[in-house]
Design a protein around this nucleic acid. Structure first.
Lengths: 112, 112
DNA sequence: TCCTTAATTAATGAATTGCTTAACCGTAGG
DNA sequence: CCTACGGTTAAGCAATTCATTAATTAAGGA
């Protein structure tokens, strides 16, 4: 792999781990410090830090530092694109012309 | 990582690659042989085969062999669960009680 | 039978992932 | 000042991912 990872891939990649998904679920309730996010898990703090870094790079969380606490906040915008992709591929869509046109468009975007 | 990968992780993992997503997009038009799926890409056939294996393990395609051709068909069922997860985390949901209850339920499922 | 076509398997390799422990950094409090 | 607390950085390791080339299987046609 040479290519700079596109945003959509980064989001799906971030979601492809149960720990990270659980963290995002927790953040739906409201912002949390790293310690609070780590609490349900048995893994080490550095492991938690690394998961958070993945989420941050995917744009799914924001971190703000006050004193020695890092507060994490959920960002849902990147999920819009992910949702759009999934919904597009899920429907009982049968217009072959539209589908082919869309596929060719996707191919073109992909080769930019 | 020790745990046997759950289905949802496998689906998101499969979607976290532009080549695989393009293959699924192509399959929306209709079933295709491996050769047809490989056509837009410059990578080797074995690489294509491995991508298809990932998609198959995630339940996103089905392969049927007739003569020396393997025909791939899109299976959208696994996308339902993925869609549900994303939509759940995307909404402008503000009932903290429900969110907390749901989060705790998710945690419990996660530890089974 | 021999050759071509379609695709997979096997073996290899570089890069990435997910975890660990140990060391470090910045803030607050005695 | 120095110690504790909250977190990150660094280094190392096993396993997985994504690609390659070479060899293999399996069916169809001359």
């Amino acid at each position: 792999m040479v290519e700079a990872n596109d945003e959509l891939s980064a989001v799906f990649q971030a979601l492809a781990d149960p720990t990270r998904r659980a963290m995002l679920s927790r953040l739906r309730v409201g912002p949390a410090t790293v310690g609070e996010l780590a609490e349900p898990f048995t893994m080490s703090r550095p492991a938690i830090s690394q998961h958070l870094k993945v989420l941050e790079r995917a744009g799914l969380i924001e971190r703000t530092a006050t004193a020695q606490w890092r507060t994490c906040t959920l960002r849902t915008e990147p999920l819009d694109e992910a949702s759009a992709w999934v919904e597009r591929h899920r429907g009982e869509w049968n217009d072959r012309f539209d589908l082919l046109a869309e596929h060719l468009r996707t191919m073109k975007e992909n080769s930019e």
